[in-house]
């Protein structure tokens, strides 16, 4: 789990928040830089495409600008930010449900050769299969209900433990466990249906 310790010589989240509350735009910028990938990836897995994820990411940080002073430090900033981002994503999904948008154009993903691990011989067929599997997994995730996507993302992709997921989602640990179990089975069945 990403924490707020000073790991790379930069300021901690807490110090950046204090700087922001004292009026420093630089501190806020640093906070955005530290967490933009975290927010974007969560939004991408929950919303299912880069364009909506980028929009949600923008909205999250604009909202953060207005609401950061309400952060009480009762949980880590990272956990709190996940909660805020999830709420922004849920709002997006609600709006989409009310006003369904046309399907976004196909996305330009990374080139297959860019995904090649260092030192591995270039094998177009293997790479194609790898990319195809990842696309298939992402597209199966997209079919899940939002509450399943959230728990899958937080536990199986991001690696948060049950207690941390429960904290982010504000639900009991037992709920996380049963939701995750159902989500995994549903996803496995989705993927099974897609196998050639």
């Amino acid at each position: 789990m990403e924490n707020s310790l000073n790991l790379g010589g930069g300021l901690t989240d807490e110090a950046l928040i204090r700087g922001f509350l004292d009026g420093s735009a630089d501190c806020f910028e640093e906070l955005v830089r530290k967490h933009e990938n975290q927010v974007f990836n969560l939004a991408y897995r929950v919303l299912g495409n880069r364009s909506d994820a980028a929009d949600a990411c923008q909205e999250t940080f604009v909202l953060l600008l207005r609401k950061l002073h309400t952060f009480r430090g009762e949980s880590s900033f990272s956990t709190w930010l996940y909660r805020v981002s999830l709420n922004v994503c849920r709002d997006h999904l609600r709006k989409q449900k009310k006003h369904p948008a046309p399907l976004p154009p196909p996305e330009e993903g990374p080139r297959p050769e860019d995904t090649l691990e260092a030192g591995v011989a270039f094998d177009p067929e293997a790479i194609f299969e790898q990319v195809e599997t990842k696309d298939m997994v992402q597209s199966a995730i997209a079919q899940l209900p939002p509450r399943f996507k959230e728990v899958i993302y937080l536990h199986d992709i991001r690696g948060f433990n049950y207690a941390e997921v429960a904290d982010i989602l504000s639900v009991a640990i037992g709920t996380v466990k049963s939701r995750l179990n159902r989500a995994r089975i549903r996803l496995a069945q989705e993927l099974g249906d897609r196998e050639p």
Binding site: N37, F40, N41, Y44, R50, K134, V137, D156, I157, R184
Partner: peptide
């Protein structure tokens, strides 16, 4: 399910 979990852990992070 076990294979799915492994595939999930293998998903690359999306870079902005």
């Amino acid at each position: 399910v076990s294979g799915t979990i492994a595939a999930l852990r293998d998903l690359p992070e999306q870079a902005l």
